[in-house]
Amino acid sequence: MPPSTDPIYTGLGQAVRIGTDLLASLVVGGGLGWVADTYLFASEPWGMVAGLILGLAAGIRNAYRSAQRWK
């Protein structure tokens, strides 16, 4: 087993994270928007639209932040 500072593992570990981070933020954002639409405000479809946009922004911010840690 290589040491945990092995660049291959650190690099792969960082890279593999980003895809799921993007997706999860999008799902959470869209989900929150959908909940707001259906149960809180009856504002279909605008809550989900706003939620998806915010989720996308959060996902990109997450990816950007994990790339910053990479240094």
Binding site: L23, S25, V28, N62
Partner: peptide
């Protein structure tokens, strides 16, 4: 945005 990215952590 930060709230969503926090909530996305356990899911991802």
């Amino acid at each position: 945005i930060e709230l969503i990215s926090q909530l996305a952590r356990p899911i991802s």
